[in-house]
């Protein structure tokens, strides 16, 4: 009898507390149900034709490329910013962090409007640039990239910053004693150690950019083939052609899952 109780108690310690499992199930159901409804309403028979429409293929190509471009821009300027936030000794770091987090909190429409006032034809920076070069950011593909970057970069910056903070800086000391320059240390020690957080940050950034709506529509408009990304196309289609809207949504879901699923276990979890 005593021999039987010991393993049972051991198994019991590993069990989930009783309220946790049902609540977690509610959370899963809450997220899964809308997607199930979407699948249930999907016009499966006409799906091929719907997805083949130029409005869908244009929007899909634009969404994927602009999200990638926004991620690339965010990596180039966001990783250095993360380094400064994590390691720099500059005054006003907290204020900078709050500022960079602002686009995550504000409605994207506000961001889009702010972008217009900065980079629009009569904007703070956009005005002089337009007058001297004729270049205009809004209502162009680059406007979409700009709007995406504005909204999505904070996800990358905050993720990489926490990754850099968690890294053991003594490895950098060790590299310095071996004669490595600051640049070598950054390239061969710091960045490899922060690698998982950079990948995770880039994926989050890309996913956020892919779904961006408010800032894009405000700053870049809704021109098919130029600035009409998937979310914009879905919104427009909902008014006119519900089946097309569902088809667009399914494509967006498939693309997102195809990226998130393989990365999830490897990079996004501890």
């Amino acid at each position: 009898m005593t021999a039987g109780t010991a393993p049972r108690r051991r198994a019991g310690q590993g069990r989930t507390p009783w309220l946790i499992a049902p609540l977690a199930a509610v959370a899963v159901a809450y997220v899964a149900l809308p997607f199930a409804a979407l699948l249930q309403r999907a016009p499966w028979t006409d799906l091929d034709d719907l997805v083949g429409q130029p409005v869908v293929t244009d929007a899909l190509r634009l969404s994927i490329t602009t999200a990638l471009a926004a991620t690339a821009v965010s990596l180039v300027i966001g990783v250095p910013l993360a380094w400064v936030l994590a390691r720099g000794h500059l005054p006003g770091r907290s204020a900078t962090r709050a500022l960079i987090t602002l686009p995550m909190v504000l409605p994207p429409v506000v961001g889009g409007a702010a972008l217009l006032f900065a980079f629009g034809r009569r904007g703070l920076l956009g005005g002089p640039v337009y007058e001297s070069t004729g270049l205009l950011l809004p209502y162009s593909v680059w406007g979409v990239v700009a709007a995406n970057t504005f909204v999505a970069m904070p996800f990358l910056v905050l993720t990489v910053e926490s990754g850099l903070r968690a890294a053991d800086q003594r490895y950098e000391d060790a590299a310095a004693t071996l004669g490595a320059s600051r640049w070598t240390i950054l390239r061969r020690v710091t960045l490899p150690h922060a690698g998982p957080s950079i990948v995770a940050g880039a994926v989050l950034c890309w996913a956020r950019a892919l779904g961006e709506f408010g800032a894009t529509v405000t700053f870049a408009g809704n021109l098919q083939g130029r600035t009409q990304t998937m979310p914009l196309a879905v919104f427009l289609a909902l008014e006119s052609d519900r089946d097309a809207a569902i088809a667009l949504s399914l494509v967006l879901m498939a693309v997102s899952l195809a990226v998130l699923l393989p990365l999830r276990d490897r990079w996004l979890t501890g």
């Binding site: 000391d173 060790a174 320059s181």
Partner: peptide, 29 residues
């Protein structure tokens, strides 16, 4: 600066670079 001093250090916990092989750790310097 540290990188210019002709000084070798064996750190507590050794701090071998985890992503490099033993050979590449030694080759690092």
């Amino acid at each position: 600066p540290t990188s210019k001093r002709p000084i070798g250090v064996v750190f507590q916990d050794y701090l071998l670079f985890p992503r490099l092989s033993a050979l590449d750790n030694v080759a690092f310097g």
